[in-house]
């Protein structure tokens, strides 16, 4: 069963997203809402990873070797300034989008595996990931005109 690989992918994506949220929070501490909400969302990602961990362990017992090019690198550090903030939020958005689609895929697999416990985790977490995407979109929409059209 290859589900273990997707669980591992999702687990690592959540850990990476938590880390990226924290880096963006630190880099843009002068934007108080960004700092506060990125820290808050980092904790949510931590909780997601924690809830996934037992399933990663359980399914890895009978998993074949990990396929090539499973993981992708979406974040290479923060930037500065108004447009830098926009780009950093865009990185977070793409990372959250990867988590979002991976929850969907893992959720489908949970159905196939008749794994009600895993399905419950997916149901409670995927909604929070969707809110992350929504918040990032909201914040970027508000920031974009000033950063791209107005600022020097």
């Amino acid at each position: 069963m290859n589900l273990a690989h997707y669980l591992g992918l999702l687990h690592r994506a959540q850990v990476n997203l938590a880390d990226a949220f924290r880096q963006v929070a630190d880099a843009h501490a002068e934007e108080p809402d960004i700092e506060h909400l990125c820290q808050q969302q980092a904790k949510r990602c931590d909780a997601h990873a924690e809830q996934l961990h037992p399933f990663v362990v359980r399914y890895s017992e009978d998993a074949p070797d990990e396929p090539d090019r499973l993981h992708s690198q979406l974040f290479t550090g923060t930037r500065t300034g108004g447009i830098g903030l926009l780009r950093d939020l865009q990185d977070l958005y793409l990372m959250a989008a990867e988590c979002d689609i991976t929850w969907t895929v893992v959720g489908q697999a949970a159905y196939g595996a008749r794994d009600k416990e895993l399905l419950a985790v997916v149901r409670s977490c995927e909604g929070e990931t969707a809110i992350q995407l929504k918040w990032l979109r909201t914040r970027m929409k508000a920031a974009a005109p000033q950063a791209l059209v107005v600022a020097d």
Binding site: Q40, Q41, Q132, K134, W135, R137, T138
Partner: peptide, 9 residues
């Protein structure tokens, strides 16, 4: 909105 983040619906 989502009250925890301010995300708009």
């Amino acid at each position: 909105h989502d009250l925890a983040t301010g995300a708009e619906f």
